[in-house]
Simulated assay, not measured.
Amino acid sequence: MYAEFQASQFAPEAQFRPSCHHKCCWKAPHPELVKINSDGAIFPNLNKAGIGVVIRDNKGLILASCSKKLPKAYSGEEIEALAAALALSFASDIGFSRAFLEGDLWTVYRALMGDDYSMASFGLLIKDAKFEAQKF
């Protein structure tokens, strides 16, 4: 598993810029739930993208995490929808059944919560994420 983690890391020349310029605070989920935070990053100069997932309990203790390197630079909506689907699949695979998912792109969140997404460029990715959400 460590080798897979090492292989998923980006080249040192990749530059990271914070997407959030305001103060962000983590908020605890209900004690019976775990909180799944997912995020995607795009590296257009490298034609790559990445996804990260962190699962925490209500005290903020990290219970599990994963990351994935993708060989294509997706759109913001696509990478966030992919991140949501991966996060839900990962959480289900390792045994969590009650969870709260949090991401940072409002259009993806609205699509996950509603039914009006099928014509969006990321509609099939939302469908995948909703399929994974049925496991909770």
Rank of each mutant, 00 (worst) to 15 (best):
Y2F: 12
E4D: 15
E4W: 08
E4A: 15
F5E: 15
F5S: 14
Q6G: 04
A7V: 10
A7E: 14
Q9A: 14
A11G: 11
P12C: 07
A14K: 05
F16P: 03
F16N: 10
R17I: 05
P18K: 11
S19Y: 06
C20D: 10
H21R: 11
K23T: 12
C24T: 11
W26K: 12
W26I: 05
A28W: 04
A28I: 06
H30L: 13
P31T: 11
E32G: 11
L33P: 02
V34D: 00
V34P: 02
V34M: 07
V34G: 01
V34H: 01
K35L: 06
I36A: 01
N37H: 08
D39A: 03
G40K: 01
P44C: 02
P44D: 02
N45S: 14
N45R: 13
N45M: 11
L46T: 06
N47M: 06
N47Y: 07
K48R: 15
I51E: 04
V53R: 02
V54C: 15
I55K: 00
I55V: 15
R56L: 00
R56W: 01
D57Y: 04
D57M: 03
N58F: 08
K59F: 04
L61Y: 09
L61C: 12
L61I: 09
L61H: 14
L61D: 15
I62R: 15
I62N: 15
I62D: 15
L63Q: 03
A64P: 04
S65V: 10
C66R: 03
S67C: 15
K68D: 11
K68F: 13
K68G: 09
K69F: 04
P71R: 02
K72H: 05
A73D: 06
A73C: 14
Y74R: 03
Y74A: 03
A81Y: 01
A81W: 00
A84H: 12
A84I: 09
A85K: 00
A85N: 02
A87T: 03
L88F: 05
L88C: 08
L88D: 03
L88I: 11
F90M: 05
A91Y: 09
D93Q: 12
I94F: 09
G95D: 09
F96L: 05
F96M: 02
R98Y: 13
E102N: 10
D104G: 00
D104L: 00
D104H: 00
L105T: 05
W106R: 10
W106Y: 07
T107E: 08
T107W: 01
V108N: 02
V108C: 02
Y109D: 07
R110A: 13
L112D: 02
L112F: 09
M113F: 05
D115N: 15
D115V: 09
D115Y: 06
D116H: 13
Y117M: 09
S118H: 14
M119Y: 07
G123V: 12
G123I: 12
L125E: 00
K127F: 13
D128C: 11
A129G: 06
F131R: 14
F131G: 06
E132A: 08
E132C: 08
A133P: 05
A133W: 14
Q134I: 07
Q134A: 08
K135M: 08
